[in-house]
């Protein structure tokens, strides 16, 4: 049997992501990466919390005076919805419905790109206010934390797009099913991190 084995919805296994040895290895290795990423983000959160509103005397911007909730609320809703659309994509992957999966992944990518666009707008806005990366310890910690998350969003988007294009003519098989599954896990993880960013950075920042 080779990896180009064709499947029908009837012969498609219940858990295609872990049906092969390679799939199992990818699955376990990827979760190990996510656990390590948890620690990475924890160190950035800890740095941010330690340096929040700290900096040279006379620094102008503090969290309470800078952040605006409506934009953050929109970004949160968009990213949360993109998490649901990637769940839909995986639902269709498990039903061996390649076109529907691609369509939902496409929607996920559009939502993710919108989120990223809003984040770039936000950063650009802050920089124009004079709150640049080198403004204070607070600004550096803020940009590193939120920027690392933004870089993950960018990476997740590139990953989805690369998978969608590379496999567009292949359809679903045992070779690419684990790949799609892991990309969607990564996307959920990005949302998990954002939940803490909007809570710890923005909501707790606004209340001072």
């Amino acid at each position: 049997m080779d990896i180009n084995q064709k499947y029908t919805p009837q012969s498609w296994p219940d858990h295609p992501e872990t049906a092969t040895l390679e799939g199992k290895n990818k699955f376990i290795g990827f979760w190990l990466l996510l656990a390590a990423e948890t620690v990475t983000f924890a160190s950035l959160f800890a740095t941010y919390l330690a340096l929040k509103d700290k900096g040279p005397s006379g620094m102008e911007y503090s969290a309470a005076g800078l952040f605006e909730l409506p934009l953050v609320f929109a970004m949160t809703m968009i990213l949360l919805t993109s998490s649901l659309t990637s769940v839909y994509a995986m639902y269709h992957m498990k039903n061996h419905n390649f076109k529907a999966m691609q369509a939902w992944l496409g929607i996920t990518v559009i939502l993710g790109a919108t989120f990223l666009g809003l984040e770039i707008y936000e950063f650009n806005h802050y920089v124009h206010l004079g709150f640049g990366f080198t403004n204070s310890a607070f600004s550096s910690a803020f940009y590193v934390l939120v920027g690392t998350h933004g870089a993950h969003v960018l990476f997740g988007l590139s990953w989805f797009i690369a998978l969608m294009i590379r496999n567009s003519k292949r359809g679903l098989n045992m070779y690419n099913a684990p790949k799609f599954y892991l990309a969607s896990l990564y996307w959920h993880f990005i949302d998990v991190v954002w939940v803490f960013i909007f809570t710890v950075v923005y909501l707790m920042g606004v209340i001072g």
Binding site: V39, F41, A42, T47
Partner: peptide
């Protein structure tokens, strides 16, 4: 894996 990660994450935040 995840609970180990969360444990280390918690200690990191607490320590800093």
């Amino acid at each position: 894996f995840m609970f180990c990660g969360m444990f280390v994450a918690f200690i990191t935040v607490l320590a800093l």
